[in-house]
Simulated scan of single mutants.
Amino acid sequence: MDVIILAAGRGTRMCPLTDGAPKPMLPVADRPLAAHVADAAVSAGAEKLVFTVGYRSTDVESFFGTEYGGVPVEYAHQPTRSGTADAVAMAVTHVDGAFAVLNGDNVYDAANLARLFEHVPAVGYTRVSDPSAYGVVSTDGGTVTGIVEKPANPPSNLANTGAYAFPDGARKLLDVQESERGERELTDVLGRLVDRETVTAVEFDSWADVAYPWDLLSANEQALESLERAVNGAVHADASLRGRVTVEAGATIDAGVVVDGPVLIRDGATIGPNAYIRGPTVVGPDAAVGHAVEVKNSLLLSGASANHLSYVGDSILGPGANLGAGTVTANLRHDDEPVHAGDDDRPTNRRKFGAVIGPGVKTGINTSLQPGVMLSTDTWTKPGEVVDADR
């Protein structure tokens, strides 16, 4: 089975984190999101990977090269992002026979993909509590009878997982018209296929859609569930590592540091002295957590730093972000309701969620960030500010 992985979009709903990287290349534990997709595809039996690329395509190409996981890798360029059907149309010349299509920003299980590959044509689905945010699949006895994109009144609770196994003849069905959203949708291709052939509905028992920054936090939490203890960096004798903690070679942990796993500390990161890190947390390459800083359930991307007397809870720090001394991310509402975030005040469905701090952000000393605040790339705050709205 040749597998097409869709990785051309920027991921505007993930801003500001995607200002410097396409969404499929945002990190989940020790590698990009798209690498987790590729790993699952290869484990499921993929014989070739074809990435459809567009926004910052060189980021994808430089990471995956011409071979990944022992299988060849090719690239199809989508100059304008005109929808998922258009993205597949760019890539089908690189595949032979039946082919699979996977979203590059979803988290898949290899066993589920293997079952999908066995039932061509097929589409993966999973059961969700609120299907209105997804493509919704209708079935009858294990056969797909229809699919509709983000309906106001969903016909079922079966969400499309963005995983398809198409027969060779499906490449002739890719010339669909633009939808009401102004895009050529792969779900419309599937609808045409359903009218012609029996399409198997394959239930996925494990799947995640990474659409918003808080979903990236959830994906990292899930990935760290399988983290194993491994200490390869320099750890001071007076530091305490509890449970499943991985310290990569090149990382440094100073005296007085306490780390409660699961925590992944990447190459070049520096921790302490006298810092406290609670999992699930990822401290990215060359990131820094300094004196008297507490970090809990957070993601610090490459080069991010919180060097003095700060609290980082349930938050994401973008590459190169720097928190001034005494910066605090509040992560819990007084009314105990789920935190809302983003321009549309969207519910995160998380009881605790802190801040999304974009690349290059600098906070002044004693800055307080209210739950759900998002700071755009290169934003500054003044000393002593209380930030209760996005900027």
Rank of each mutant, 00 (worst) to 15 (best):
T187I: 10
A163N: 11
V231W: 07
V189H: 00
I265H: 02
E178N: 11
A230Q: 12
A239R: 00
V282I: 13
W207H: 12
T187R: 09
G272T: 04
R192A: 05
V257E: 04
A163K: 12
A249N: 05
P285N: 08
F204K: 08
G191V: 02
A237K: 14
V283I: 14
A234T: 11
R244C: 01
V202A: 02
G268C: 09
G268M: 10
S218F: 01
F204L: 15
L174C: 11
E197T: 10
V282K: 06
D267V: 04
R184I: 06
T187P: 00
A201N: 06
L193P: 03
L216H: 05
D254K: 10
E178H: 12
L227K: 09
H236Y: 02
E180P: 14
S179G: 15
E203M: 13
D238E: 08
N160W: 15
T252V: 15
P213R: 07
V259R: 02
L174D: 01
A219V: 12
R184C: 06
A275K: 05
W207P: 07
L224W: 09
E197S: 13
D195Y: 02
V176Y: 04
A255R: 07
P213S: 05
R196M: 11
V245A: 02
E221W: 08
V258I: 12
Y276F: 10
V176F: 06
L193C: 10
H236S: 10
R184M: 10
F204R: 07
G191D: 05
L173H: 10
A211R: 09
P167C: 14
V283D: 00
R244M: 05
D260W: 04
D215K: 07
E203W: 09
G243Y: 11
V199P: 03
V283F: 06
S226W: 00
G279V: 03
P285D: 02
A269K: 04
T200A: 14
A163M: 15
T198L: 09
R184H: 13
G279F: 00
E183Q: 10
A223F: 04
L216W: 09
D188H: 05
L193W: 01
N220L: 00
K172V: 13
P273K: 05
G191R: 06
G279M: 01
V202P: 00
G256K: 03
V235W: 00
D175C: 11
G169W: 08
W207N: 09
T187F: 01
T187Q: 04
D205V: 11
N274E: 15
V259K: 01
N274I: 02
A239P: 00
F166Q: 12
Q222L: 08
D168M: 15
N220F: 07
N160V: 13
R181I: 12
N160S: 12
D260R: 12
A219G: 11
F166A: 14
H236W: 01
G169K: 14
G272E: 06
A239S: 02
V245K: 05
I271G: 02
R244E: 02
E248C: 03
A219C: 14
A249Y: 03
S218V: 12
T246V: 02
V257G: 04
Q222E: 13
E225V: 04
W214M: 06
R184T: 04
D260L: 07
A170M: 14
G256E: 03
A234C: 10
Y276K: 09
P262T: 03
L224R: 08
A219I: 08
R196N: 05
I253E: 00
A255E: 07
A165G: 14
A251L: 02
A163W: 15
D267A: 10
A249E: 06
D175L: 11
R244L: 05
